[in-house]
C-alpha cells in the first residue's frame, strides 16, 4: 500500500481536483484505492456525491474506528472516507493526543488498511499545522500542485522547510504545474525557469473548462464516457507519479 498526499499550504491550487481525478485514474487501472477527504470543507466528498453518515465525526477517525464510515463511490475499486465538519479542528485534537506520538498518529491510523488498498490518496486542507506534519510523515509521496506564479512557489519553499524540520527526504515531494494557462506569459516564464528542477514532474495539468465544471457534474473528468483531454492529462500525471515512486 502506498499513501499519496495531495498537499500544499496554499488554497485554490487544484489539490482537490487532482486528488479526485488521480484517485479515479488509479482505480480505473484496476487498483484498489481509498480517497480520504481530510478537508472539513468536504469538496472531494461533494464531487463523489458522498455524505458522511450521521454517527461519523473526528473522534471516530482519531480512535481508529472509522472503517464502517468508508463508502463506495460509483466506480469500481474506488472508496472514499468522507470529510466531516468536525475535521476543521483536527489539528487541535491531534495536538492533544499523546504528545510525542502526535505526529505519527495518522500513519498509525492508516496502516491497518494495508491489506485492503493499493493506494490511499489524501486530499489535504491548506494549512501548516500538526495535521500537515502528520500528513507528511504518513505519506510515501507528497504530490504538490503549483500554479505557475511566484506566490505558489512560496508554498513549495515552505513545504521544503517543513520536510527538513521533520527530517524527511525532499524526494518525497512530487511537484507539478497546475491550472496552467499557456496564453499567460507569466505561467510560461515561471515554468521555463523552474520546470527544469528535479522536484517538478514533466507532466502538468492545464486550466480547462471541463475541470472547472466538475462541481456542476459532480464526477471525475473522463467518467462521462466521452474523450477527455483533461482525463488524459491526469492519466499521464498518474503514470509519472508511479514511475517516480518506483525509482526510489
Amino acid at each position: 500500500m502506498k499513501i499519496i498526499a495531495v498537499y500544499s499550504s496554499k488554497g485554490g491550487v487544484g489539490k482537490t481536483a487532482s486528488a479526485v481525478n488521480l484517485a479515479y485514474t488509479a482505480a480505473r487501472t484496476g487498483k484498489q484505492v481509498l480517497l480520504c477527504d481530510m478537508d472539513s470543507q468536504g469538496a472531494a466528498s461533494f464531487y463523489y456525491r458522498i455524505k458522511p453518515k450521521k454517527k461519523f465525526n473526528r473522534s471516530c477517525l482519531l480512535s481508529g474506528d472509522f472503517y464502517q464510515f468508508i463508502r463506495g463511490t460509483d466506480y469500481d475499486g474506488l472508496d472514499l472516507l468522507p470529510a466531516h465538519f468536525s475535521f476543521r479542528n483536527l489539528d487541535i485534537a491531534l495536538k492533544e493526543a499523546q504528545k510525542e506520538k502526535s505526529r505519527k498518529l495518522l500513519a498509525d491510523l492508516l496502516l491497518p488498511l494495508k491489506s485492503e488498498y493499493d493506494f490511499i490518496v489524501l486530499d489535504c486542507p491548506p494549512n501548516l499545522t500538526v495535521l500537515s506534519e502528520n500528513i507528511i510523515l504518513a505519506a510515501d509521496s507528497i504530490v504538490t500542485p503549483v500554479v505557475p506564479t511566484t506566490l505558489s512557489l512560496l508554498a513549495l519553499e515552505q513545504l521544503l522547510k517543513l520536510l527538513k524540520k521533520l527530517d524527511c527526504r525532499k524526494e518525497k515531494i512530487l511537484a507539478f504545474f497546475s491550472m496552467v494557462e499557456r496564453r499567460k506569459a507569466l505561467h510560461l516564464a515561471v515554468m521555463e525557469k523552474y520546470g527544469k528542477y528535479r522536484i517538478f514532474m514533466k507532466s502538468s495539468i492545464p486550466y480547462t473548462a471541463e475541470i472547472e465544471k466538475m462541481g456542476l457534474h459532480r464526477r471525475p473528468v473522463g467518467s462521462g464516457g466521452n474523450q477527455s483531454p483533461a482525463a488524459h492529462a491526469y492519466d499521464l500525471l498518474w503514470q509519472e507519479i508511479g514511475q517516480r515512486m518506483s525509482e526510489k
Binding site: 472503517y67 463506495g72 491497518p112
Partner: peptide, 12 residues
C-alpha cells in the same frame, strides 16, 4: 497507537 484486529467488511 497501533490498531489491529479490525477487519473491513466486504460488500456482499
Amino acid at each position: 497507537m497501533p490498531i489491529t484486529g479490525r477487519e473491513m467488511k466486504r460488500p456482499q
